[in-house]
Computed example of a mutant assay.
Amino acid sequence: MDNMVAYTAAPGDVEQGPEERTVVLLKKKSSAAWIWKVSVAVLFVAFCIVGILLFAWYWNRRPEMLTQSGQTEALMEKHTAEKTDPQYTLRRISSKAKAAIHLEAGSYDEDEEVDKPLEWRSGQGQAFAQGGFQLANNQIIIPQTGLYFVYSQASFRVSCNDGEGARRRLTPLSHRIWRDSDSIGSKASLMSAVRSACQNTAQEDGYIVGQGWYNAIYLGAVFQLNRGDKLWTETNQLSALETEDGKTFFGVFAL
């Protein structure tokens, strides 16, 4: 209860006697009510101060938090872009294989012989060989009989002008992987693909005005290969081949 009641006897008329004495009730107000109100007010003020301090801390940290968030998003975008790159995916898979080889194309000089094959190199860039794989005479030598994933990519950039301003038409581009095996007694084509560059419309996929036509031929599949089998590639239009930044590669890894 908020209030307490005290009973106090008031002095009566002595002559009236104890029977006729009047009793007066005096009500004394308790101090608990105002103490409670003061406590509530103090807590309210304390909560307000804490809220102001938290808001000020968040506002001061906001630029730093936004910067960290932007950096995280940029790293995630870069990581996602890397994962969508075929060479990145193949390199990660092959690096975990017990036997694998990954080769990159050497540079091509236009003054070289027209029928000279595309040269593969194992000691540059991301190229490597492990688990018994060898590169000999520009051919991959299979170390053991088993299942293998064979892949290759050839990237081209073709000038679609003939030098007099006219557009070329239907320039064929081809890329093929050959296999030579004692078990079959002769060479056989494992995979091949053909593209046609410089179509009639400049809006064609891969065509950039002023920079020619760009596209890549990718080959990849699983094969049962025997020990000692030899794999090599055959590519036309070598003068239009893109050999930098891992755009053209050739590899095999065991499954």
Rank of each mutant, 00 (worst) to 15 (best):
A105S: 12
A105Y: 13
A105V: 05
A105T: 04
A105G: 05
A105Q: 11
G106Y: 00
G106N: 14
S107R: 14
Y108V: 15
D109I: 12
D109N: 15
E110R: 03
D111P: 00
E112N: 12
E112L: 03
E112P: 01
E112I: 00
E112T: 10
E113P: 01
V114T: 12
K116W: 02
K116Q: 12
K116M: 13
K116I: 08
P117F: 05
P117C: 09
P117S: 10
P117Q: 09
L118G: 02
L118Y: 02
L118K: 05
E119H: 11
W120V: 07
W120K: 07
W120R: 08
W120H: 08
W120F: 09
R121W: 03
R121T: 09
R121S: 13
R121V: 14
R121I: 12
S122V: 08
S122E: 09
G123D: 15
G123R: 14
Q124N: 12
Q124W: 00
Q124M: 10
Q124C: 09
Q124S: 15
Q124G: 13
G125V: 07
G125L: 10
G125Y: 02
Q126N: 13
Q126I: 11
A127V: 05
A129L: 09
A129T: 08
A129V: 03
A129E: 04
A129P: 00
Q130K: 15
Q130V: 02
Q130L: 06
Q130S: 11
Q130F: 02
G131V: 03
G131I: 03
G131P: 07
G132P: 08
Q134E: 13
L135H: 01
L135S: 03
L135W: 04
A136P: 00
A136C: 04
A136T: 07
N137D: 15
N137K: 13
N137R: 11
N137L: 07
N138M: 07
N138L: 06
N138S: 08
Q139M: 11
Q139V: 00
Q139L: 04
Q139W: 03
I140S: 06
I140N: 05
I140V: 12
I140W: 02
I141S: 03
I142M: 06
I142G: 01
I142A: 02
P143E: 04
P143F: 00
Q144E: 15
Q144D: 15
Q144G: 02
Q144M: 11
T145N: 10
T145W: 01
T145S: 15
G146V: 04
G146T: 06
G146W: 02
L147Q: 06
L147M: 11
L147G: 02
L147F: 05
L147H: 04
